[in-house]
Amino acid sequence: MNWAGLIDLLLSVAAILLCLTVHETCHGLAAWALGDPTAKRLHRLSLNPLRHIDPFGALMMLVAGFGWAKPVPVDPRYFRNPKSGMAVTALAGPLSNLLMAYLALLLRAVLLAFYRPGAVVLEGAVGFCETLAVLNVGLGLFNLIPFPPLDGSKVLGAFLPDR
């Protein structure tokens, strides 16, 4: 049995769950901060991955490098300005991913300062930080594409006329 491959798979799954969970939670937190209680009422302001993960979407991300989570429900009628509220809410997910990527690379740099040859756990932690950074950058940038249902389409919508 290839234990290293199994450990890599488990670390990838953990990174995917973390990326998607934080992304979706930040959508809900942004909407809540702007006055929409929908996500809070549905218990989606949680870092529990079970509240956010679409099983098929997570499997596709693992297998095909492309997947999705359950979208956090948002009701723009609660926002003072629905267009800008939706744009801010949509931006919260990708921005959280880019921030997590930065933090993962920062942690990687700290871990490498303590690196000694043969430190297996440290090597695994460095690898996890690298995987986390790559997945977060990919997810954040991909979601900024202005094509529905991606977040970028809602951001672009704030700059387009109502018609």
Rank of each mutant, 00 (worst) to 15 (best):
F147N: 04
C19F: 14
F56V: 15
W68A: 07
A90S: 15
P148F: 10
D36E: 12
A125R: 00
A101W: 02
R41C: 01
A113E: 12
G57P: 01
G28P: 00
H43S: 15
N136F: 10
V121N: 10
P148T: 11
L9Q: 05
A15L: 09
L29F: 13
L103G: 00
L42E: 15
F79R: 08
M86W: 04
L141F: 13
G35E: 09
L18W: 03
L34M: 09
L135I: 10
S46F: 03
A119I: 06
L103K: 00
V110T: 13
P148E: 11
H52V: 05
A125G: 07
A109W: 12
T21R: 00
L139D: 01
L11Y: 03
G28Y: 01
R41I: 08
H23S: 13
S153C: 12
L98T: 05
T131S: 13
G140W: 00
V121E: 15
P146E: 08
W32S: 08
L18T: 07
N97F: 05
G157H: 04
N97P: 11
L20Q: 05
M1K: 05
N143A: 11
C19P: 03
V88G: 01
W68Q: 03
I7R: 07
H43V: 07
P37I: 01
P73R: 06
D8F: 03
F128M: 04
V120Y: 09
F159N: 08
V134S: 03
A92F: 05
P73G: 06
D75G: 10
L122I: 06
G157L: 07
M100S: 05
A87R: 00
A69P: 01
L144V: 09
V126W: 00
V121W: 14
R108N: 04
L9V: 13
L99W: 04
L103A: 13
L6I: 15
A90D: 05
R77Q: 12
K40H: 15
N136W: 06
L105N: 14
A87I: 11
A158F: 15
A64Q: 05
L141C: 12
L6P: 00
L107E: 02
N81K: 14
G138T: 06
L132V: 09
F159S: 09
L135P: 00
R41N: 10
L11D: 09
N48V: 12
